[in-house]
Nucleic acid binder design. Structure first.
Lengths: 215, 215
DNA sequence: GTCTATATCCAGATAGAC
DNA sequence: GTCTATCTGGATATAGAC
């Protein structure tokens, strides 16, 4: 009788082609803008005619969705939890730097993952789940760094996207905002510590809104 | 002889129609997404056929450009310099709150003014000049609040866009990040003061990276 | 100043031959 | 699995009548 082959060469080939298509899509998004993506351009770049793409993806939005999922997985892969030391300032700096560097490295990817600028696109539940899981992981790690209040996490993400956004919009390719990362970490941690100290002695700090430093 | 009329009713009517067209364009941008703007839709909304728009704007990009200029002017008009008191924390809070509220009030406007997501669009020099002038004014006012270093201003703008971005992307219509504004101001001002104190005594602070609070 | 008609082009998507 | 051919609809923009 015929033995089952170990590898499914058909499926492998198919996955490779899908990856090729997505690579082409990313290249166009980076060069022409995420919203400028067209099936014709993608097809031409991989040496196909546009209708052939439908053998691999159901629609243009399905391509966006696959790109979204891929971007999320790249984000997960970029994390460096193993380099955390237990020192809050070091670890928060590590996480923030990783985030900002990842985002500024590819503005189109940042736009797809973190902004809502493509009319009609929203990630499928499966793709979105990848992103939610990663955010949970991020929150958990930040909590071990002392960012335990929801507001602390939100301030952290605001700093991350703010530095990223300014860097991409106003100094693409440079480091004008990237180089503020260490400063931002110090600022954030100082602030969280100050708030923690204040909440320990709520009576003392009451009404003394300026002039005196906590601790 | 024929006296010159005081008012040019023709020109007035024309400007009014242009304004009507822009209003329609903004409405579509808000409802369907900035990138989803089409001349047909705009025309239909003002009761015209698409070609008639060319009597008022040279191209679709010219409409985007007029929207950009209009948005910049609205930003200028939203400023409340007259409410500044001279107290740094109050004034920085005022400016930051004004910025974030202005931006979150209209996500499409924020996208057009502060992000680069429309393929092929960039503001004309005349429109861009409005924006540059406003940024200069902003920097000058922030300088009177003690944000004198370029990095301080950059940190301020990063905080502003970060809070705005997160608010728009992850809690549209809510206030999850907006309510962090006061906290952010305190955090920023504390940090700037700490840096200023440190730079006054560079020798003492050298190597003492944590543990001791400045001042 | 606005219209109709049209030019030109491009988009996403489908049918069916090979 | 990829192609050609085509459908359908949309886009921006122009020409010219009224």
């Amino acid at each position: 009788m015929l033995g089952e082959p170990i590898r499914d060469r058909r499926a492998e080939r198919r996955e490779a082609t899908k990856a090729e298509i997505l690579d082409a899509a990313w290249a166009i998004a980076r060069e022409e803008g995420l919203a400028a993506l067209s099936l014709r351009d993608v097809a031409r770049r991989v040496g196909m005619q546009a209708p052939s793409l439908y053998g691999y993806f159901d629609s243009k939005m399905a391509i966006y969705d696959a790109m979204y999922a891929q971007g999320c997985e790249q984000f997960v892969a970029a994390e460096r939890w193993d380099q955390m030391t237990g020192d809050a300032r070091h670890d928060i700096g590590l996480i923030l730097r990783t985030m900002v560097q990842f985002c500024t490295a590819d503005a189109a990817r940042y736009q797809l993952l973190f902004q809502r600028t493509i009319p009609g696109f929203e990630p499928s539940p499966e793709s979105y789940a990848i992103s939610v899981a990663e955010l949970d992981r991020l929150s958990a790690h930040l909590a071990t760094c002392g960012l335990t209040e929801p507001g602390d996490i939100d301030m952290f993400t605001a700093l991350g996207t703010g530095l990223t956004d300014q860097q991409i919009s106003n100094d693409p390719g440079g480091d004008r905002w990237v180089r503020l990362i260490d400063d931002a970490v110090e600022m954030l941690v100082d602030h969280v510590e100050k708030k923690a100290a204040r909440s320990k002695r709520p009576a003392r700090s009451n009404g003394a809104r300026n002039g005196r430093k906590a601790r």
